[in-house]
Amino acid sequence: MSGVLDVIAWFLLVVGALLSLSAGVALIRFPDLLSRMHAATKPQVLGLLLVLIGCALRLRDAVDITTLLLVAVFSMATAPVAAHMIGRAAYRAGQARADLLVVDELADADDKR
């Protein structure tokens, strides 16, 4: 039973680490800030959750799992706020490339800047 849990934990850790590498590659190759933000959320939410679940499967202690759950709740509650602030700052600073946007709902707004 514990061997099975260890194998699952290693698999989740490897997948989470793979997501971090993919985010690094995307940070280098993607053209503008909004697409880089899209890539950056993968290790921040999914990769972090996978790694935390893998860590919890390895530790198997109630106190440790509570701490890991706290980390997960913190990061999932704060990541959307930070991403919203960065995206808003990027759009208002003119960093979003207009030719890459499919829909620009703020294009006609008077107070967008």
């Binding site: 971090s20 985010a23 972090l48 990061s75």
Partner: peptide, 9 residues
């Protein structure tokens, strides 16, 4: 995020 994942690993 990578640092957090490293410490958890």
């Amino acid at each position: 995020a990578v640092i957090v994942m490293s410490i958890a690993t």
